[in-house]
């Protein structure tokens, strides 16, 4: 039972992070390697907001979430917009540079110490016992639910929403989409803010569960194989991919060797790349060369 919970929680973490990669990749074919840093930034925003709205944890959380959406849009408007049409590798490198910048800023503003937003907000993290002697902490539970809600909302949005449809169109053929009058910059900016939002949610909830340090971005890198196994341009794929990677990781830790957990996601990934390079649910495509 506990193993099952562990898998679900870890899969939710990976899935919530992975959908950020997918959103941006799907519309603009750019791999956002600053995703982890933006996620961490979201967690630190909670800290900032908690001192701003002392005594109102809900207000502080909402403010942090809104700020992270704005951050995503700003990143696109001031940075990634300039990279539209450039070499894909250059765009990826730009996100790397952004990541470095964010890390520097975080150390500058919040120092490199471990911080506990939950403590700053004055909220606790009780544990629930589930039938079958499983334990789950409040914020892990919230994370699982948030993940489900986020995926549900994104599915609905992309399937039925007006802007969602535009996003899909831009992803399929940007030139055609632009010529049909779709505001490409608007669509891309939206993708960036949504991606930052989901990333920040993951970061915030993880930070509420167990604190935040400057090493948080590395976790996002481990979520990356999940996105790739499922197919980089498929949301549903990211969910399944996260389950596979998390399942493999948790089971290997328990039954084989904990040390493997670092390598396993990437082994799964290599196996996947050999069999179905475009992922379980991805679309087959010819990728740009350098």
């Amino acid at each position: 039972m506990q193993l099952l919970i562990n898998i679900v929680v870890l899969a939710s973490i990976y899935a919530l992070i992975a959908c950020g990669y997918v959103l941006i990749y799907r519309v603009s074919r750019v791999l956002n390697l600053a995703h982890g840093e933006l996620m961490m930034f979201g967690a630190y925003l909670v800290l900032a907001c908690s001192s701003l709205f002392a005594g109102h944890p809900v207000m502080a959380l909402c403010a942090a979430v809104i700020l992270s959406i704005v951050t995503g849009a700003l990143v696109y408007i001031f940075l990634m917009r300039k990279m539209t049409g450039e070499m894909v590798l250059a765009a990826i490198l730009t996100t790397v540079a952004l990541g470095i910048l964010v890390r520097g800023v975080v150390v500058l503003v919040w120092s490199s110490q471990q911080q506990y937003p939950a403590q700053a907000l004055g909220i606790s993290n009780p544990t629930f016992t589930l039938p079958g002697d499983g334990h789950i902490s409040l914020w892990s539970l919230v994370l699982v639910l948030t993940n489900l809600a986020a995926y549900g909302a994104l599915f609905g949005f992309l399937r039925f929403g007006r802007w969602g449809m535009r996003m899909r169109a831009a992803g399929q053929n940007p030139l055609l989409a632009a010529q049909r009058g779709i505001n490409l910059h608007g669509v891309y900016a939206l993708a960036w803010s949504l991606s930052t939002l989901t990333g920040a949610l993951a970061g915030i909830l993880m930070a509420l569960d167990s604190g935040v340090t400057g090493s948080m971005p590395v976790i996002a890198l481990k979520a990356f194989p999940a996105a790739l196994v499922g197919g980089l341009d498929s949301l549903g794929g990211a969910l399944i991919g996260a389950l596979i990677v998390a399942g493999a990781e948790v089971l290997l830790i328990y039954y084989v060797d904990p040390l493997l957990s670092d390598v396993v996601p990437f082994l799964v990934l290599v196996a996947m790349l050999f069999v179905r390079p475009w992922g379980l649910f991805g679309t087959r495509e010819e990728l740009d060369r350098v």
């Binding site: 929680v9 990976y14 471990q114 892990s140 990781e249 830790i253 328990y254 957990s261």
Partner: peptide, 30 residues
């Protein structure tokens, strides 16, 4: 435990199931 770990519960589950009455850790604070 590898340094970038999203969720320590998986490791803790295994540790707990081994049934120790003392646990000793000498590692970075995290």
């Amino acid at each position: 435990i590898p340094p970038p770990t999203a969720d320590y519960t998986s490791f803790a589950t295994k540790l707990k199931d081994a049934g120790p009455n003392w646990v000793y850790s000498w590692a970075p604070w995290v």
